[in-house]
Design a protein around this nucleic acid. Structure first.
Lengths: 190, 190
DNA sequence: CGAATTTCTTAATCTTGATTCATTTTTTGA
DNA sequence: TCAAAAAATGAATCAAGATTAAGAAATTCG
């Protein structure tokens, strides 16, 4: 039984059985219950996470003491705090399971070793990072193109399935407005 | 005389003379005058640009017919529309020189060939993309943490030199507010 | 140099979405 | 199964920043 991470990597590069062995021995697969934290503020982030099942969120507490979600990760997405990971500085973020989930964890040092042993993985992660950056570029475009209400309708039309999976207040947080405002626009006909 | 792109790559990976030759034969260095466009809407973006001198901006025209700048690139930064580049679809964006500039242009197909010939370049671009994504994560954090006025003051304290180089209205556009509001907050004492 | 263009400023009014506070509905888990 | 916690809603007031409409100042370049 192939892990879903290996399946995902295989979509971008070819792996030998030896490569797969090396990858599998570098990762730890964890089943985590809803609300479990994988990262909390003031801790240095040492791992990147691949979601094989479920949903995680990345958020921080803003000055008004509200949760501000900056990213969700569902099946086949990576999530981590790259700033903390790369600069070895304490994070401001929480990474938390929104649903019971299964994640593939890779420690940063082990990942660096793995790049030495399986150089083709550089290509896989180059492509993954480029897609992530491209998505971030699009997101910034949307933030500056639409009003909050438009962004909600747009998001709902793009990911109709996803909004069923999470509480409305989390979507409001991700979109950058209050649950009250969310209620207001949901109360309007279409 | 080494190009500044080669210098930059050399900070992350080791290149042989043969590698350098291959890279140099894949790129085109252009000197472009202020206001020159490297990309315009409805065109598919086929190149990525490395700024060796000067400053470029990436922007689109929003629904209110105003320019919305989403990115600047100064010396040693890459800039392109990855969405258009990767999916071969027409761009919504302009890429324009803000100052007389020198850019290293790499065609996407030539870059793909180059990855075959110089696989270690995957590593360089993996790191560059990861940094770009990390910067985008931080930017989204700031967008949702601060008011517009706070973001202006924060940006000014982070990049005091840069704000001298560009017209104020471009900074207002990048920060997502109007030139009038920019004037208002600049008129306040400190 | 001097006219044209770009850029910046001021001020009055208006809008989107926040805040506050209260209530209702839904979900969870002992 | 039912009490407690979590999530969603509603309405009144408020604030940050947009809009509109002039003008003033600074650059550019023929």
């Amino acid at each position: 039984m192939q892990s879903s991470l290996i399946d995902h990597i295989n979509k971008f590069i070819e792996l030998t059985d030896a490569d797969i062995g090396l990858i599998n021995s570098a990762v730890v697969v964890k089943s985590i219950k809803k609300k479990t934290f994988l990262l909390q503020p003031d801790h240095i982030c040492h791992e990147i996470y691949f979601v094989s099942k479920g949903c995680l969120r990345l958020y921080f507490i803003n000055k008004k003491l509200n949760e501000q979600i900056t990213q969700f990760a569902i099946e086949n997405w990576w999530i981590t705090d790259y700033h903390s990971l790369e600069n070895n500085v304490p994070s401001n973020y929480y990474i938390q399971a929104v649903e019971n989930s299964e994640v593939v964890c890779i420690n940063k040092n082990k990942l660096d070793d793995l790049f030495e042993k399986v150089p083709r993985l550089e290509r896989y992660f180059r492509i993954v990072q480029q897609r992530a950056f491209s998505a971030a570029q699009k997101r910034i475009e949307y933030i500056y193109s639409f009003t909050d209400e438009e962004r909600y309708r747009h998001f709902r039309s793009l990911f109709p399935g996803f909004i069923q999976r999470i509480p409305q207040y989390m979507l409001a947080s991700y979109l950058g407005f209050t649950p009250q405002f969310m209620s207001k626009i949901r109360a309007k006909k279409i």
